[in-house]
Amino acid sequence: MSGLPRRGVFIAFEGGEGTGKSTQGRLLAEALRARGIGVITTREPGGTPGAEAIRRLLLDPPGETGWTSEAEALLFAASRADHVAHLIRPALERGDWVICDRFVDSSRAYQGGAGGLGDAAILALHAFGSAGLRPDLVILLEADEATLAARLAARDGDASDAIGGRPVEYHRAVAAAFRDLATRDPQGFARIDAVGDPQTVHARVLAALEPLLASRVV
């Protein structure tokens, strides 16, 4: 047994549109690699060929009406099941750290909270499709609406995907759902102020991860 690799660490970045999840995930991966840690970066929906195919369906749905909330939740769960089976679990079993841009808590906030399906339905899909896998820590990036609106305008202009382009009330409900999830699970979530330049926010992320890093010295 002593020859087996130690299980890796699973970190998920969560938050609404424009909070800087991709940037902070990249900066964290660079910092971990500089410490000699093996890191896999990935995203949801996506991360594997099958999951990326589903991503395209989700963000650019066929037809005029788009997906119902139920169909959307099922597609996310199917994408995640493939992602977990073929990328996340194997990487963790090799001893790598996995940094994921969104995971199941996005489904809980978007489809379960703002979409009205409820948390129990999302968790049931996750239990069936991905055996209930949880990150070791969720980094929840939070910022005020004005900051996020400015970032999104700079990043996307007038173009948005099927989910990002939903009304402001929907995104407020998403933010409220994320806050509720973090409040109910303070050990599983680290709430990070995402206002500031990327390096300043990165320093906050590293500070939140320090206990986990200290316990996983390589």
Score class of each variant (00 low, 15 high):
V9S: 08
G15Q: 00
E17N: 12
T23Q: 03
G25I: 00
R26L: 08
L28K: 05
R35A: 14
R35F: 10
I37E: 14
I40C: 15
G46F: 05
P49A: 06
G50K: 03
E52I: 07
R55I: 04
R56M: 06
P62M: 10
E64D: 15
S69H: 06
A78W: 04
V84Q: 01
L92Q: 08
V98M: 12
D105T: 02
D105E: 13
G112A: 11
D119M: 14
D119A: 13
D119K: 07
A120M: 08
A121I: 06
H126C: 08
F128C: 07
S130F: 03
A131M: 11
G132H: 06
G132Q: 04
R134F: 11
A150F: 03
A153T: 11
G157N: 13
S160Q: 14
S160K: 10
R166G: 07
Y170T: 04
H171K: 03
H171M: 02
A177Y: 01
L181D: 00
L181I: 05
T183V: 12
T183I: 07
F189D: 01
A194M: 02
V195K: 11
G196T: 02
Q199F: 06
Q199H: 09
T200Y: 05
V201E: 00
H202T: 10
A208G: 12
L209K: 02
E210G: 12
L213Q: 02
L213D: 01
V217Y: 15
V217D: 14
